[in-house]
Amino acid sequence: MVNLTPESTLIGGYRIACGVRGDGPPVILLHGTPSFSYIWRNVAPRLAERYRVHLFDLLGFGHSERPADPAVDTSVAAQMPVLTALMDHWGLSDAHIVAHNIGGAVAQRFGIVLRDRVRSLTLIDTVSFDSWPSPRTRQQMQGGLEKLIRAPEAQHRAHFRNWLESAVADVDSFHKGALDVYLDMISGPVGQASFFQHQVAHYDPRYTQEIADRVWELGSKPVQLIWGETDTWQAVDWAYKLRETILDSELYILPACGHFAMEDRPEDVAQLVTDFIARHEHGAD
């Protein structure tokens, strides 16, 4: 498995897995759920040809610490100070931010509250407003997280294999590549409980609804929206709503592409991000 976060640093007393590659203007990549920085493996190397790419796994995700105490806050709101502290750790006063899924919720809040630290913002199949969790996930959560945590591993893996398959358009390629990597990370004695306690438990639209009337403020910086045409997790209608709300934002719809755009169309995502940032670079790095 490609590890894009081989280093670690302590943020708020918790270990955060991170990594940096390339040279040039700074770019930060934010993953979502139930993924981790691995999802950028076919995008980050292409961006690193021109930019200095910074990655990390959110607290409670991937190779970062997944606290044993379920009371530790790993919500969208709690990830903001992690991002801020990491930028300080990396010596970045500001950066271009590229975010996917709930990473996009973190980025939206960050771009509104700390706009001077954002050069440009690219949101990929992101949650927004009250777009999440999906009806399928809402139904699953209604049964109680404890029941899901205690489910037999074989049952858990079968259920979430099917769920992850719905995140892509090219299921055959996903099976040959990344599917089991994602599944392994949210399964097993640590992964299964942590997934529900530190990810699913915080699938709460209040984190985007709290800023819903301020989303337009993101337009003070360049904003690009990238969306999979066949995204069933975040329907493309939400992309159009974001474009209408954020003045002068650019929207690109990728055909034959699901929610995990970096799995289905990594070359297109990398090219769109590279070209967009190139048009909005500023300052000396």
Rank of each mutant, 00 (worst) to 15 (best):
G12E: 11
C18V: 07
L29G: 02
L29W: 07
L30D: 09
G32D: 10
P34V: 07
S35N: 11
S35I: 06
F36R: 06
S37C: 05
R41H: 13
Y51M: 04
F56W: 10
L58Q: 15
G62Q: 11
G62V: 12
D69V: 04
D69Y: 09
A78Y: 05
Q79R: 08
L83H: 04
A85S: 12
H89V: 00
D94A: 15
H96W: 05
V98G: 04
A99C: 09
N101K: 00
I102W: 14
G103H: 08
V106A: 08
G111W: 00
I112M: 03
V113H: 06
V113L: 13
R115E: 13
L121G: 07
L123C: 07
V127E: 00
S128E: 02
D130K: 11
T137P: 00
Q139N: 03
Q139T: 08
Q139R: 08
E153V: 05
E165A: 10
E165P: 02
A169S: 12
D170V: 06
F174K: 09
L179F: 07
G188F: 11
V190H: 13
V190Y: 09
V190R: 14
A193Q: 11
S194R: 13
A201F: 13
Y203P: 02
D204V: 01
P205L: 01
R206Q: 15
R206N: 06
D213F: 04
D213P: 02
R214Q: 15
G219I: 00
P222Q: 01
L225I: 14
G228K: 03
Q234H: 12
A239K: 10
A239S: 08
R243T: 12
I246H: 00
P255L: 04
F260M: 13
P266T: 11
P266R: 09
D268S: 13
D268R: 14
V269F: 05
A270W: 09
Q271T: 10
L272S: 01
F276I: 08
A278S: 14
A278R: 15
A278I: 08
A284I: 11
A284L: 12
